[in-house]
Design a binder for these strands. Structure first.
Length: 312
DNA sequence: TAGGCCATCTGGTCCT
DNA sequence: AGGACCAGATGGCCTA
C-alpha cells in the first residue's frame, strides 16, 4: 500500500511536470495548455473510461445521399469504383461520413453512439416501406455502407438475393490469380465479370445454386464474415480509444492516430515504470524521470495534432 | 490537391 | 467446418 501511495504521489508530480511542458512546447502545438478547460490536460479522467462494448461499436457511420462527386478522392479518377450506381433503386451513391467533433460531444471519432439509433430507424423504415420481412443476419451488425453496395443486396427480396455486384473486386482478383495459376479457369470468371458478377443467363436459371466466390464461400457466409470482421475491428478501435483516454494529451481536442497512441503509450509506460523504480526501457538504459518527462512531452508534441473545433 | 488516416470488404491462413 | 486473425485493396474524410 505504501508503495502504491508513493507511486500515486509520483504520478501527481509527473502530471505537474508534464503540465509545465518543455521550453519549446509552443513551437509546434499552439494548443498546448490552451483552448481547453483546466483539468483536461493530461488528467486521466476515469469517467471517460467507461467500457465501450463491442456490440455498441457496430455503428460508425450514417448513410447520406450525395450527388456523385467529381474527383474529390485521389483515386476516384484513375481507378474503377466498386460502387455501382443504383439510383433507380436506392438513390444516389452513398458515402460514409465521419462523425467528428462538430456533431458529437466527444472529441474522438466515436460515431456509433449517436448514429446507431438513427440508422436503425432508417433500416426499420426501409423494411416497412419495402415490406421486408426478415432482417439479414449480417444486418444485426449495422454495417458501414460507404465502400461497397453489399448492403443493398442484403435488403433485397429473397429471390433477388444472389451475388450481384458486391464481389466485383473479388472477381477481378480471382481472374488475376487464375491467370497466373490455372488459365483454364478463366472463362467462368470472365462471364461473371461481363455481367457484373450476376448470375449468368446461360446458367440453370430455374434453380440457382448459391453463388460462391473464389473460396467457395456463399454470399450469406461472406456477409456474416464481414459483419464479424467489422465487429472485431470495432473492438480494436474501442480498445485504442480506451488507451487514448488513458494516456496524457494536451486536451480532449488533440487528435492522435492509432500509431501515435501506441507511441505515446509506450513513452508513458516507460515513465511510469521509472517512477515505480522499474525500468521497462528496451535497452535497460534506466533513464531518469526528468528524461522520461522530456521524452513523453516530445512524443506528445511530435504525435499530437490539435483537432480544431469547427464550431469555435 | 496530395497525402494521412481510417473503415470496410475480401481472401488466405491458422486454430479449435 | 467455421471462426479468428491478418494483410491487401479500396474509397471516403480531413488537413496542410
Amino acid at each position: 500500500m505504501a508503495h502504491t501511495d508513493s507511486l500515486f504521489g509520483k504520478l501527481t508530480d509527473f502530471s505537474a511536470i508534464i503540465m509545465k511542458g518543455s521550453p519549446n512546447s509552443s513551437d509546434r502545438d499552439a494548443g498546448f495548455c490552451s483552448g481547453s478547460e483546466a483539468g483536461d490536460d493530461l488528467s486521466i479522467d476515469n469517467s471517460r473510461l467507461e467500457p465501450c462494448s463491442p456490440t455498441n461499436t457496430s455503428e460508425d457511420s450514417i448513410e447520406v445521399k450525395v450527388p456523385p462527386t467529381s474527383g474529390r478522392n485521389k483515386r476516384k479518377s484513375t481507378e474503377p469504383s466498386k460502387v455501382v450506381c443504383r439510383e433507380q433503386e436506392t438513390g444516389p451513391l452513398k458515402k460514409r461520413i465521419r462523425y467528428n467533433t462538430s456533431s458529437s460531444s466527444e472529441s474522438s471519432f466515436r460515431p456509433w453512439d449517436e448514429i446507431k439509433r438513427q440508422q436503425q430507424q432508417q433500416i426499420h423504415n426501409h423494411r416497412i416501406h419495402h415490406e421486408i420481412p426478415m432482417p439479414n443476419p449480417a444486418e444485426i451488425f449495422l454495417r458501414h455502407p460507404g465502400v461497397t453496395t453489399l448492403h443493398l443486396s442484403s435488403i433485397k427480396r429473397e429471390e433477388d438475393y444472389i451475388q450481384d455486384e458486391p464481389l466485383a473486386l473479388v472477381a477481378k482478383k480471382s481472374v488475376v490469380k487464375v491467370e497466373m495459376q490455372s488459365p483454364q479457369k478463366i472463362t467462368s470468371n470472365d462471364d461473371d465479370l461481363s455481367n457484373g458478377f450476376t448470375t449468368s443467363p446461360t446458367s440453370n436459371s430455374s434453380k440457382r445454386p448459391p453463388q460462391r466466390n473464389y473460396k467457395n464461400m456463399t454470399r450469406e457466409r461472406r456477409i456474416e464474415a464481414n459483419a464479424r470482421e467489422r465487429t472485431r475491428v470495432h473492438t480494436i478501435s474501442a480498445a485504442y480509444e480506451t488507451l487514448r483516454k488513458s494516456i496524457p494529451a494536451y486536451s480532449n481536442t488533440q487528435k492522435l492516430s492509432k500509431l501515435s497512441v501506441l507511441r505515446v503509450a509506450c513513452s508513458y509506460i516507460l515513465t511510469l515504470s521509472r517512477m515505480a523504480g522499474e525500468d521497462y526501457s528496451h535497452d535497460n538504459s534506466e533513464p531518469s524521470i526528468a528524461e522520461c518527462s522530456d521524452s513523453i512531452t516530445k512524443t506528445i508534441q511530435t504525435e499530437g495534432k490539435i483537432r480544431k473545433k469547427k464550431d469555435e
